[in-house]
Simulated scan of single mutants.
Amino acid sequence: MKKTALPLVALCLALLAGCGPADGAALPSESPADTSAVLVDGAPWFATFRVVAGAETGELVLAANDGTSGEVYVLNTEGVSLDRPVENGELINVYYEAVMESFPCQFSNVTAVEHTETERDDRCGLYLQVLSDLWEVDPGLNTNLEELAVDLSELTDLSESEKAAVTWAFGNAHCLMPITGTWEELVEAGYIDGENLSWNGNGCLFTLSGSADGTFRADKWASGLGAYTFSDCTAKMGKDGSWSYTIGYEAIS
C-alpha cells in the first residue's frame, strides 16, 4: 500500500517555513536581569520558552510558551552567559536576532538567556520518562524500528508546542524522525494495514492519553498481537517541580 502524508506529520518535514519570532514580542527598554548582554540599536527579539529536555548537556529542546504552535526549538547554550544552570521544566526568556527556517527551529545570534523565576514544572520530563520506560519493556516490539509513530493528541495537560517538543525529543533519543498521528490516521496514510492489524514495515506507535493531574495511560502498538500498556497511571509533582509516577497495572497482548 502506498504511504501518504498524514495531516499531522509536520514534525517529519525537513524544513518548516515561517519560523519567525516565537511570539512577536519586542525587547523591553531595559536589559534583562541576571545577564551581562549589552542590547543596543535594533536589539534582538525575545520570547519565553519551556525547557523540555537537554538541560544536562546544554543542548536544549524548547517549546514556545504561547502554547498555540506546534513548533519545536533547539538551543545550544555553549558560550551564552548564564548566572546559573538552566533546568528542564523551567521557563526561560531567550533573546535572539532571528530564527532559522529549519526543523527544529534554531536561533541566530542569541545574546542572552534569562531565568523567569516562575515555578518549575517538568511534566514534559515526566512524559519523556514514561515513553522511555515503555520503550524498555517488551523491547522486541520496538527493536530495529524503521518507523516510530507518536500520538499525544489525547494528552490534555500539555500545549501543542510541548507535545511537539516531547515527540521530537523522544524520536531524537532513538535517532528516528517521529511520525505523528492516531492509529486511524496511520491506517489511512498506509503505514498500518488495518485489516491485518500490522505495520507495512517495521514500526511501532507510542500513545499517551489523559493527564498527570488525574490519571493517564501509555501504550505501544506494533501489531494486533504485539502491544504493551501502562494503565491507570498516577503522578505527583515534587517541591522542585520534578515528577514521579506510579503504574496502576500493566497489560500485554
Rank of each mutant, 00 (worst) to 15 (best):
M1H: 08
K2S: 12
L6I: 10
L8Q: 10
L8A: 13
V9H: 12
L11Y: 05
C19R: 14
P28E: 08
P28K: 07
S29M: 11
S31W: 08
P32Q: 09
P32L: 07
P32D: 06
A33S: 11
A37V: 07
V38F: 10
A43P: 02
P44W: 04
W45P: 04
W45A: 15
F49E: 15
V51K: 06
V51G: 05
V52T: 09
A53N: 12
A53F: 07
A63K: 07
A64R: 13
A64I: 02
N65R: 13
G67W: 14
S69R: 08
G70K: 15
V72G: 03
V72H: 05
V74R: 05
V74Y: 01
L75M: 11
T77P: 07
G79R: 01
V80K: 06
E87L: 13
E90N: 01
I92Q: 01
V94N: 04
Y95G: 01
Y95E: 06
S102P: 02
C105L: 03
C105N: 04
Q106C: 10
Q106H: 07
V113C: 11
V113Y: 03
T116C: 06
E117H: 09
D122A: 14
R123W: 12
C124D: 04
S132Y: 05
D133R: 08
D133H: 08
D133T: 05
D138C: 10
P139S: 00
L141H: 07
E146G: 10
E147C: 06
A149T: 03
L152F: 09
L155G: 05
T156D: 09
L158Q: 04
S161W: 05
K163F: 02
A165F: 12
T167H: 04
W168M: 11
A169C: 03
A169F: 04
G171A: 07
N172E: 13
N172L: 03
N172S: 10
A173E: 10
H174L: 04
H174E: 00
C175Q: 02
C175Y: 03
L176G: 07
M177G: 00
P178S: 00
G181Q: 05
E184P: 00
E184L: 07
E185L: 07
L186E: 05
V187L: 03
E188Y: 00
G190E: 02
G194I: 00
N196G: 06
S198C: 08
W199R: 03
G201C: 05
G201R: 03
G201K: 01
G203Q: 09
L205E: 08
L205V: 11
S209W: 08
S209R: 15
S209G: 14
G210K: 07
G214W: 03
G214Q: 04
F216Q: 00
F216W: 05
D219V: 11
D219T: 11
K220R: 06
T229M: 15
S231H: 12
D232K: 15
A235L: 04
K236D: 04
M237G: 01
K239T: 09
G241I: 02
W243V: 02
W243A: 00
W243N: 02
Y245M: 02
T246A: 03
I247K: 04
G248A: 06
S253V: 13
S253R: 06
